[in-house]
């Protein structure tokens, strides 16, 4: 509660104290623009991080719980081996359900490549069986051996071959977006420090007068710190709002396109980019305070 009161007191400020530092138009615009640009970029980095995280989670959870059995056999053997494989699958511990895909479902899977008018029933395509695990440990190696014995044309695909690199890639992408966020935060801190140093140098005479009349360092620093914090807060708010609008206007998840159309936030996830201005304000507060106190010490 006290912290909240302190924050409010800081934001409301001391109007008299604020007046002692003259307005600095160019530095103010520069800080505002930098904060807005950084917040805009940060909202995209966050969107990328959130989306890749979501994708990796989905790939991990959905595909890890399923596997596919593919039966490639001569036409007269296909139904017999499918039947045999189904028998094995239904008696294997760890499997919740096994379902042979109908010819229509297989046609739908192939439609993106062959089109919907190709009579696939005339093609020698393998039979697919969709297997859902029940969550208990399924021994895939043992299943492979049993299927090999009962249905020699059966091949078990537990998706590991392509799922693992995708999950790894999604993880790396998420790591990179966090790194980008860190770099954005660091760059913003550096820019605000430079702007604060420029403002402090430009106001050297003001500082000398204030010291002469008995102002303590924290009083002088506060006039600069509050100004830069509020500039960063308002600039970042503009940037974050623009970024959120741009992300919201991206094509929806329903459209065909997978990951690219899934870039964005969902539900309470929008609170994450909404917090960027506050993070920017904290960065500006710390950066300006450190810069101001350091500069004031050198002015002794």
């Amino acid at each position: 509660m006290k912290a909240l009161r302190d924050i409010l007191a800081f934001l409301v400020g001391d109007p008299q104290a604020d007046r002692v530092v003259p307005p600095t138009g160019f530095t103010a615009q520069l800080t505002l623009f930098s904060a807005a640009a950084m917040a805009f970029l940060a909202s995209f980095a966050l969107a990328l991080s959130t989306s890749t995280g979501r994708l990796a989670d989905r790939w991990s959870s959905e595909l890890a719980q399923s596997l596919t059995v593919r039966i490639s056999a001569p036409e007269d053997q296909l139904a017999i081996q499918t039947q045999a494989a189904m028998g094995v699958l239904q008696t294997t511990p760890g499997i919740q359900s096994a379902r042979a895909l109908s010819i229509e479902e297989q046609a739908a899977l192939l439609a993106p490549w062959f089109g919907s008018s190709v009579p696939i029933e005339n093609l020698p395509i393998p039979q697919l069986i969709d297997v859902i695990e029940d969550g208990s440990a399924l021994n895939v190696a043992s299943l492979r051996l049993r299927l090999q014995a009962e249905a020699p044309g059966a091949i078990v695909d537990d998706h590991a071959r392509w799922r693992q690199p995708l999950i790894r890639a999604a993880g790396r992408l998420r790591g990179l977006s966090w790194l980008s966020l860190l770099l954005i935060t660091g760059t913003m801190a550096a820019m605000i420090t430079l702007a604060a140093n420029a403002a402090l140098s430009a106001n050297r005479q003001v500082i000398e007068v204030l010291r002469q009349v008995g102002a303590v360092d924290s009083y002088i620093a506060q006039a600069f710190v509050r100004r830069f914090t509020l500039r960063a807060l308002s600039g970042a708010a503009i940037g974050a709002i623009c970024g959120m609008i741009a992300i919201a206007l991206l094509p929806s998840t329903n459209a065909v396109g997978g990951f690219l159309t899934d870039l964005g936030f969902r539900g309470a996830g929008w609170l994450v980019p909404a917090s960027i201005p506050f993070l920017a304000a904290v960065v500006a507060f710390v950066a300006t305070r450190l810069a101001a106190l350091r500069t004031l010490r050198t002015m002794a």
């Binding site: 002469q212 009349v213 008995g214 303590v216 924290s218 002794a300």
Partner: peptide
């Protein structure tokens, strides 16, 4: 300290 000197100046 710097702050003590500032206060003395008052």
């Amino acid at each position: 300290t710097r702050d003590q000197i500032a206060r003395v100046r008052r």
